[in-house]
């Protein structure tokens, strides 16, 4: 899974224009860089979108990836998000086999993880969990023994951590 040493998260602000995602994906392909996960969404400014890319840095130096990305005309800004200085979230939908005898155990697990049951079938459950990607990994591992029928993860999104040190008091003379 996303080992933080081999994977880095890039937050890429791009112009919201047709074909931009294809340019970014095409660049990775032709330069031989690997994408671990990718998430795209509009920003509050409708001229721009944000692409969050988790890059496999065993395939190329992060510096080359960033520099080559920057050459795309539609790429406006790239920030590297160090996992230690950012908040990261991912969403997972998973359908798991749950015969009547096991349903209770699965519901317990979902509650422990603060997930939710989205859909209930005769012998299947669809569960959603939003959280840190590692949390999602854990739940996925635990559910595997029951039999995962389908799973869909969004790829991580991230923002820089905020400054927590208090605003220094102004000295009163």
């Amino acid at each position: 899974m996303a080992d933080d040493i081999q994977h880095h998260t890039l937050s890429v602000l791009v112009e919201n224009k047709a074909g931009v995602l294809s340019r970014v994906a095409g660049l990775f392909a032709r330069r031989g860089f690997n994408i671990y996960s990718l998430a795209v969404a509009p920003t509050d400014d409708d001229r721009f979108s944000r692409i969050t890319i988790v890059v496999d840095v065993t395939s190329a130096s992060l510096e080359q990836v960033t520099k080559q990305l920057n050459k795309l005309i539609n790429v406006v800004k790239i920030s590297e998000l160090d996992p230690r200085d950012s908040v990261e979230r991912e969403l997972m939908l998973v359908t798991v086999r749950s015969g009547p005898d096991r349903r209770g155990q699965i519901v317990d697990l979902v509650h422990i993880f603060d997930g939710r049951i989205l859909d209930v079938g005769h012998d299947e459950l669809t569960i959603t969990l939003e959280g840190h990607p590692e949390q999602l990994d854990d739940l996925e591992d635990l559910l595997r023994v029951y039999g995962i029928v389908a799973i869909q993860r969004t790829g991580r999104v991230a923002l820089p951590k905020l400054d927590t040190s208090p605003t220094p008091l102004r000295s009163v003379s």
Partner: peptide
């Protein structure tokens, strides 16, 4: 002039 050439 192309930063990507430096260190490539």
């Amino acid at each position: 002039i192309d930063p990507a050439e430096l260190g490539k």
